[in-house]
């Protein structure tokens, strides 16, 4: 029999609760991975490496870009003249979907695909409850 105030279950529960709280507040691997993809996309745009930028998009978005006017994905991307200056600031992940806020504007939406996180919409600006995106499928 354990005395009052030193119950081992109480201590274990407190440790578990604090761990859960810290885990909930800390960015997880999904947040970091999605931010990294947006970072690569922004770097590629800034460097003019549009093939690399296209690699960060979902297949669906790449296909829809390639369909427009028969251009390739890099050609369609070039016409959009997206700025690659902003850096990813914060990622919010909801199971297999994510939104990454980009410093200076141009937020991105991502889906988790068999190849990892990929961008499904980019160059997005919030307009009320919704986002207007320059690049979306």
């Amino acid at each position: 029999m354990t005395g009052r105030g030193s119950h081992p279950w109480g201590a274990a529960l407190a440790v578990a609760a604090i761990s859960l709280l810290l885990a909930a507040c800390a960015p997880g691997p999904a947040e970091e991975d999605s931010e990294r993809v947006v970072g690569r996309f922004q770097h590629a745009l800034a460097d003019g490496d549009l093939f690399e930028a296209c690699d960060q998009l979902t297949d669906h978005l790449k296909d829809s870009l390639a369909r427009e006017d028969g251009d390739t994905c890099p050609e369609s991307l070039a016409e959009l003249r997206l700025s690659g200056l902003g850096r990813p600031q914060r990622s919010r992940v909801f199971t297999t979907s994510a939104i990454v806020t980009v410093r200076g504007g141009g937020d991105a939406f991502l889906d988790e695909t068999p190849s990892g996180w990929r961008i499904s919409a980019a160059g997005c600006t919030r307009s009320g409850d919704r986002y207007d995106c320059r690049l979306e499928d």
Binding site: F94, S97, C124
Partner: peptide, 11 residues
Amino acid sequence: NAERLDHLSEP
């Protein structure tokens, strides 16, 4: 929120 992101809405 996952559904909202599918429709490009703020979580």
